[in-house]
């Protein structure tokens, strides 16, 4: 086993930090895959939370309070806080930990900021591997804080055991709550800033939307709770709702179902990206693109015709079993 994997399993802070950089940079593929392969047998102990919601909903502040609760229960906590990268420069301001900085000197709390680096979906491309690193390192809870989301960034659902959807009053009428996407991925709905105008109305709207959803076929109850992270209100209640939700899904088999689903998605993703890589190499797409563009531009050939010819040739040559 690699020296780095050994350090991660021992819980060495610098080792964990370096391991996350390795999966995040993704340059040394062989080393990265060997690391995850040797950590994998040590994974599966941690409970993985996702916390998502629109920008400014109070995700980081709420998380700061929930970490306090977890620490009272002597739990080891790892946080992966994702913020967006600039599409123009690739730079990023990673400011989520600002709200959680009082836990910085606590040895049982590890906060890691990640830039999305062009990955869509509300998390970073390496978030899944970073979760495995923290899991193997012995953290009891791993919490993914997504970037501030709009309506379609739902990938956190594929990574976590429990998704907390944090909502705040004042972002629109009930039609927003009826829409598909982010509103559908919450396991637990937290209405933050409950002291603000419109909080009770938002609760009623969310209850209405969930009653429609539950009516269809769903059997799982989706708890709704209200908090104010700034005033430190409703936090203990939210925490106990999260705990009992976890117990429920553990007992009724939904947790195992979710985790198998996650593995399924991951395998699909790895398979597709590896196939894409080899097709890229075989077809030499980047080098040929210019001449293809020219041919299609001059109407010498249509896009499907051009590519079907190339791809069929590729499929004939590979030995796919």
């Amino acid at each position: 086993m690699q020296e780095l994997a050994r350090r991660v399993i021992k819980g060495d802070i610098r080792g964990i930090a370096k391991a996350i950089s390795l999966v995040e940079d993704g340059v040394e593929t062989v080393k990265k895959e060997a690391l995850i392969d040797s950590l994998y047998p040590h994974c599966g102990h941690a409970i993985i939370w996702g916390i998502t919601g629109p920008p400014g909903a109070g995700k980081s502040s709420l998380l700061d309070r929930l970490i306090e609760q977890l620490r009272q229960d002597k739990q080891k906590v790892a946080v992966i806080a994702v913020d967006p990268s600039s599409p123009f420069t690739g730079g990023a301001i990673l400011g989520d930990r600002l709200r959680m900085q009082k836990h910085a000197v606590d040895d049982a709390v590890f906060i890691r900021s990640m830039a999305s680096r062009g990955h869509l979906g509300g998390v970073a491309g390496a978030t899944g591997d970073a979760i495995k690193i923290f899991d193997a390192a012995g953290y009891d809870h791993i919490i993914i804080e997504t970037i501030g989301v709009g309506q379609t960034e739902i990938e956190v659902m594929e990574l976590s055991d429990i998704v907390l959807l944090v909502l705040v009053p004042g972002l629109g009428d009930e039609i927003q709550a009826l829409k598909a996407g982010v509103m559908e991925i919450g396991d637990i709905f937290i209405i933050n800033k409950k002291d603000h105008d419109g909080a009770d109305r938002l609760r009623t709207e969310v209850e209405y939307v969930l009653s429609l959803k539950n009516g269809a076929e769903n059997t799982t109850e989706h708890p709704i709770t209200m908090t104010s992270a700034t005033l430190n209100e409703g936090i203990a209640e939210a925490y106990s709702i999260i705990q009992s939700y976890y117990t429920t899904i553990l007992k009724n088999g939904n947790l195992a179902k979710k985790r198998k689903n996650r593995i399924e998605n991951e395998l699909k993703h790895i398979a597709l990206s590896k196939i894409k890589e080899s097709v890229d190499k075989f077809l030499n797409i980047d080098d040929r693109l210019d001449s293809w563009v020219e041919d299609v531009f001059q109407k010498k050939v249509s896009p499907y015709k051009l590519l079907n010819k190339k791809i069929n040739k590729f499929l004939q040559e590979i030995d796919w079993k």
């Binding site: 730079g91 990023a92 301001i93 400011g95 900085q101 890691r112």
Partner: peptide, 27 residues
């Protein structure tokens, strides 16, 4: 950030211990 780096900002009134732990965790 505009020059293309990833910048972690932790706010005011940090102890040296908190800064060092943050630097190590964030690699």
């Amino acid at each position: 950030k505009d020059a293309g780096y990833e910048v972690i900002y932790t706010g005011i009134r940090q102890t040296p211990e908190a800064i060092v732990k943050t630097a190590i965790q964030e690699d």
